[in-house]
């Protein structure tokens, strides 16, 4: 239990650090902007209670917002992300099938499940993020384009990170 908290804490710090000091300055003409920090919410353990998940997601978003000067924007997107995560996991994973608190990571869940999971969650997060940022449905096509390209960028970065810290564990 303590190890899980420590791992997630380190992951949180590293991801926020990466996000606000490195990835904030990256992007392809405002069209593809990566938000890798959501990997933290993605990799939270399966058995986390919903309330705690929402709280963590909200504060992760809020932390990023503080650095981005967009208070509430990422928090809203992360709240939606947490909701989508709960739905997705309840639809695709039987919780009782695990013996030792596994994470929804690439090494454990397999490539196919993970990429599906990452794409769905990233897309929902980015959709809310960019829609709220634009705050109108004017030129929604452009917003949607940004969502798609940014999601691709983020997912690629996620896969890279997952392959770097690849741990093969059988279910």
């Amino acid at each position: 239990m303590g190890r899980v908290i420590l791992v997630n804490l380190i992951r949180f710090i590293v991801l926020i650090f990466l996000q606000v000091f490195l990835l904030k300055n990256m992007g392809y003409y405002n069209l593809a902007v990566p938000f890798l920090y959501i990997l933290f919410i993605l990799l939270l353990p399966f058995k986390i209670p919903n309330g705690l998940l929402f709280l963590l997601a909200f504060f992760t978003g809020l932390t990023v917002d503080v650095f981005y000067d967009t208070l509430g924007l990422n928090a809203a997107a992360c709240s939606v992300l947490a909701f989508v995560r709960i739905i997705f996991i309840s639809l695709t994973v039987q919780r009782d099938g695990f013996d030792n608190e596994p994470d929804p990571s690439l090494g454990i869940m397999g490539f196919r499940w993970f990429i599906f999971y990452a794409i769905i969650l990233t897309f929902s997060h980015h959709l809310i993020l960019f829609t709220f940022e634009t705050f109108s449905f004017y030129e929604f096509g452009y917003t949607l384009l940004r969502v798609i390209f940014s999601s691709l960028f983020t997912v690629i970065l996620m896969l890279l990170a997952e392959f770097i810290f690849f741990r093969k564990k059988m279910r």
């Binding site: 919903n50 909200f58 967009t70 924007l73 947490a82």
Partner: peptide, 25 residues
């Protein structure tokens, strides 16, 4: 359906923050 209600609560909080603290929104 706690997930849904939690979503509503946190979304409303973020929305209030968003509207109150960002001049554009």
């Amino acid at each position: 359906y706690n997930a849904f209600f939690l979503l509503i609560i946190f979304l409303v909080i973020s929305f209030i923050l968003l509207v109150n603290n960002n001049s554009y929104q």
